[in-house]
């Protein structure tokens, strides 16, 4: 069964300029480009790690190029934006019911933020940052 055709014509490439809400949706969509590119960058890094000490040193050296710094800064902004919006959505995606009442949404999202902070601090500590 095919869908009924749209009554109104929707411009396929510019529809999101119509409303701030669509723009916010699209700004979240765009983070996937940077996060996806960063994942491929991680694959390259692991491949360099497997290739031996000199390859790994070369990889760390290549990180210091201006293009790499700009890319990673953009990836950081995208990753943090993705994380924040993801945790904000958890209260809608998986509401928790205890007895008759639902746990307040802020508690669910808040618990994710706390877990995120703790996990990040633990990983930074394990990586020897402090």
């Amino acid at each position: 069964m095919s869908r009924r055709p749209l009554v109104r014509e929707v411009p396929p490439t510019t529809w999101y300029f119509r409303q701030p809400r669509y723009m916010r949706y699209m700004s979240r969509e765009i983070t996937s480009i940077f996060v996806g590119a960063y994942c491929m960058f991680l694959v390259v890094g692991l491949q360099r790690l497997a290739a031996g000490p000199s390859a790994w040193e070369g990889f760390l050296q290549a990180l210091t190029s201006p293009a790499s710094i700009v890319f990673q800064f953009l990836a950081l902004v995208a990753a943090v934006y993705h994380a924040a919006t993801w945790f904000n959505a958890t209260q809608k995606a998986m509401p928790v019911q205890i007895g008759e009442d639902f746990v307040p949404g802020n508690v669910i999202s808040g618990a994710h933020y706390v877990a995120w902070a703790v996990l990040s601090v633990v990983i930074l500590h394990l990586a020897g940052v402090f």
């Binding site: 960063y38 994942c39 991680l42 990836a75 950081l76 993801w86 990983i123």
Partner: peptide
């Protein structure tokens, strides 16, 4: 991604 990628980006 939400839990791990931001801190990994910070490290790199």
């Amino acid at each position: 991604i939400a839990f791990f990628i931001p801190v990994i980006v910070v490290l790199t």
